[in-house]
């Protein structure tokens, strides 16, 4: 396959960026999107140019390191992570636009790499449990109803990649934060901090400069892990409940 790439190039956070056009040849449809970018970077290095910086780690779709807005879609046209997106989703001769996540809470570090530590600070605000640690407890020591276990697991699937923020027209982090809160709030292990968790994490989310939610649903459409949109309503429910309890 021969492709025309238009890639966002930006030297660092302080400099102006722009889209740069590159032609890449010899791309196999079985390559992942990141392998295609590796091919481009090998070319660039041989030509003595600066390779395109992009985030990646496991390349198995489970770590949440990779990002990229491809042709206007977070993680590209398939509902998966960029590392699990294959070039067979494109056609020979296509022009592909590659941009970084866009949000004021995710400043660009270089080219396609953005700083997602705002998510870490939201987690630090309450995305943990204060149970004693040590070796893993016996699985049946704490009974969990099946429906709650399923809901917790569904939300635990969030890998914190930030596609929800990138896809949201308001740069809102409601889906991410709701996944983290719902994951722990339905479990008995998470219940001691049930109220402070939701209040503190939402406050931190707001302090990071993420936008507000207008329920466009773009986040849930882009989420590679399929965190559903009603999770946001569930978080709002938890927040209203916590406000009543803490005040009352």
């Amino acid at each position: 396959m021969r492709l025309n790439l238009r890639v966002w190039r930006q030297k660092n956070g302080g400099s102006e960026g722009a889209m740069a056009t590159y032609a890449v040849d010899g791309i196999s449809p079985d390559m992942s999107f990141l392998e295609m970018l590796d091919t481009l970077n090998e070319d660039l290095i041989l030509r003595g140019e600066d390779p395109v910086a992009f985030d990646h780690d496991c390349r198995e779709g489970i770590c949440g390191a990779c990002s990229l807005v491809i042709n206007g879609d977070a993680h590209g046209p398939e509902r998966t992570t960029t590392c699990q997106l294959h070039m067979r989703s494109f056609r020979d001769g296509d022009t592909i636009d590659v941009e970084p996540w866009r949000a004021s809470a995710f400043p660009v570090v270089k080219d396609l790499v953005v700083d997602r530590s705002a998510f870490d600070r939201v987690i630090q605000a309450g995305g943990y449990i204060t149970a004693t640690t040590g070796s893993a407890p016996e699985a049946h020591a704490t009974p969990v109803p099946k429906a709650d276990a399923d809901s917790a697991f569904e939300h635990a699937e969030c890998i914190g990649c930030g596609a929800c923020v990138a896809a949201c027209p308001n740069g809102s982090a409601m889906l991410f934060t709701s996944a983290k809160i719902n994951h722990l709030n339905v479990l008995p292990q998470g219940s001691p901090e049930r109220e402070t968790r939701v209040l503190d994490m939402v406050a931190q989310m707001d302090a990071e400069g993420f936008g507000g939610c207008t329920l466009t649903g773009e986040c849930a459409t882009a989420c590679p892990k399929g965190i559903p949109l009603p999770s946001i309503a569930a978080m709002n429910r938890e927040w209203l409940r916590a406000r009543r309890k803490v005040k009352g």
């Binding site: 807005v69 042709n71 879609d73 866009r102 004021s104 308001n170 809102s172 993420f210 936008g211 207008t214």
Partner: peptide, 14 residues
């Protein structure tokens, strides 16, 4: 708040 959270628009719009 929403407009401030997305200061740079995407080049590829859909």
């Amino acid at each position: 708040r929403d407009l401030k959270a997305r200061p740079t628009a995407y080049v590829h719009r859909r």
